[in-house]
Amino acid sequence: MAGLALLYEHPQWLAPLFAALDRRGIAYAAIHADGHGFDPAGRVAPAPLIFNRIAMSSFLREGDHPIFYAQALMAHWADAGARVLNGAAALAIDASKARQLSLIARLGLAVPATRVVHRRADIAGAAAELAFPLVVKANIGGSGAGIIRYDDLEQLRAMAAEGMVPDSIDRVWLVQEYVPVRGGRITRLETMGGRFLYAIDVDGGGGFDLCPADACLAAPGKPAVTIARADPAPALIEAAERIAKAAGIDIGGVEVMIDDRDGTPRFYDVNGFSNFVANPLDVLGWDPHERLVDWLETMVERRA
């Protein structure tokens, strides 16, 4: 049995990690979610260390996505004695923007003004409590999917009447004040083992798809995205580490934007997949996949 197993659904996104593991001669089992099943009465995990690599955007690629299946599977493997990285608890946070914002606010950090509803019919009523412009977001998103901006209540009501609101696979929506972002850039802080790894500034030209990975940037029709290495203030780094630890995220990104109206940092997203930045040697001067493999190797040795 290999010491490490990875559950995934997007081979292209995993290619850099697989290549780094292969270069280091680390044995691993790559388990594609498609076609997978498990016996809930069984008590054998595929490896002592499991790395969950299921992305929330998987529902965009496949109607039979594994998001909820993976939560049950990760909990089952943990019960079988495996150490699961980004396990069931982290997946539950990753799969709910509403829970993310609640967690961030509980930590005393600022978030965009938001209302959460579970019916399309309640979106306009929730919007009336907020200031326009605003955005309506699906609770589970990915790569900017499920976000629409509305400039006033009349526009929202008219578009909603024609069905022009985001779909939501779990029937939960966030109605959120649109935050004018200082400099047009958001900052994504990556963490590993609860500690800061690196940060990048991402400018999507006003769009919502800010995925920084090679596979995302190469997607046909994707608007141009500008990425640069960032050096966040210590307070932002400390906040991102607190969020990652509270969310149970072993490795993942935390996104923050500076509200141009008053300079307030507003945290708004926790991403448990961690699509590392494209062209890392050019952007960062080093490859985070090598650090990730160092960490995984240490974790495997601890479980041996």
Rank of each mutant, 00 (worst) to 15 (best):
L4M: 05
L6D: 05
L7H: 09
E9V: 00
P11A: 04
Q12A: 12
W13E: 15
R23Q: 10
A27R: 07
H32A: 13
A33E: 09
A33S: 11
D34Y: 09
H36P: 04
G37E: 06
P40M: 09
P40N: 14
P46L: 13
A47Y: 07
I50S: 11
I54C: 03
A55P: 01
E62L: 14
G63S: 05
H65P: 02
H76Q: 12
W77A: 15
A89I: 04
A92G: 08
D94L: 05
K97L: 01
I104P: 01
I104G: 13
A105M: 01
R106E: 15
A110Q: 06
H118E: 13
A124I: 00
G125Y: 08
F132W: 08
F132P: 09
L134A: 03
L134E: 00
K137R: 09
G144R: 08
A145L: 09
I147T: 13
R149E: 07
R149A: 12
Q155A: 13
A160N: 02
V165I: 10
P166C: 15
D167M: 09
S168Q: 09
R171V: 05
Q176C: 10
E177T: 06
P180E: 14
G183M: 04
R185Q: 13
R188E: 04
R188D: 10
R188F: 01
G194C: 08
L197S: 06
I200V: 14
D203I: 03
G204L: 03
L210N: 15
G221K: 07
K222F: 09
A228N: 01
A230P: 00
P232W: 10
A235Q: 10
R242Q: 15
A244Y: 13
K245D: 11
K245F: 11
A246M: 08
G248L: 02
I249Y: 01
D250F: 05
I251N: 15
G252T: 05
G253L: 02
E255S: 08
M257E: 10
D269A: 10
S274G: 04
N279L: 02
G285L: 12
L292R: 05
T298H: 13
